[in-house]
Design a protein around this nucleic acid. Structure first.
Lengths: 115, 115
DNA sequence: CCTACATTTCGGCAATTAACGAAATGAAAG
DNA sequence: CTTTCATTTCGTTAATTGCCGAAATGTAGG
């Protein structure tokens, strides 16, 4: 599959776009994302691997947790173009993204996890 | 479904992106697109309705044929952003799009249709 | 009117996808 | 070395999607 199509497929899901917008606020671990999206942890992990394969995010282990980061330094032109589209203030102006961003500020992995 | 997600879904298919790149060359009728993509005419019609619902193209009848046009004047910010992404010369640099563009120049609806 | 014919709609089939819970993984801490 | 626990992988299910051929649609020309 062409890279550009893989990228569009990665963004063609509302939960995955929400994840990217949340990671714009700060890096998050799986259980923090799970809490905000209210999905099964295995489902979130699957979404994250699709975003990783598309080159949009990367992960890095930190003690118990796996932190996920936006791959802002990815030199791929298509990834850069889609990032600037995602951060365009005229787009993705839905209340859901603002609500998610607020919750990102509040969530605390030490209280969430060990479910 | 949010408009932006609908747009990403519309672009998350290789044949639909090929259609948009072909329409960049000139307006086309369904049977011309069918010839180049080598799909059933009903399948092409379905792809076109998805692109139309996303606001990326529009159609207009001309005698026997229905011509499809890029909706270049669509004021929607997301549509405009995706168009400039599609026309970015660093992206969609695959040979398939060049080959399609050449075929668009050659196809003649008067010879193709009446199948 | 009636016919011709490009296109759309419909019904069905195979493949893909998003979701879940359960089991496996693997690393840190005791 | 064993336990703990966040995460990933696996197996399954329901819903969606891409594709086709056949039937319906609708319009232009006779």
């Amino acid at each position: 599959m062409p890279d550009e199509i893989r990228l569009f497929k990665a963004l063609a899901d509302a939960n995955r776009v929400r994840i990217l917008k949340m990671l714009q606020v700060r890096p998050l671990c799986v259980c923090e994302i799970r809490e905000i999206l209210d999905l099964a942890v295995s489902t979130v992990s699957q979404h994250l691997s699709i975003l990783r394969d598309a080159g949009l995010i990367y992960d890095s282990k930190e003690s118990k947790w796996v932190n996920y980061y936006l791959n802002r330094e990815n030199p791929d032109a298509a990834v850069q173009a889609l990032f600037s589209l995602l951060w365009n203030p005229d787009l993705f102006d839905d209340g859901i993204y603002r609500r998610d961003a607020e919750r990102v500020h509040r969530v605390d992995r030490n209280q969430l996890c060990h479910v």
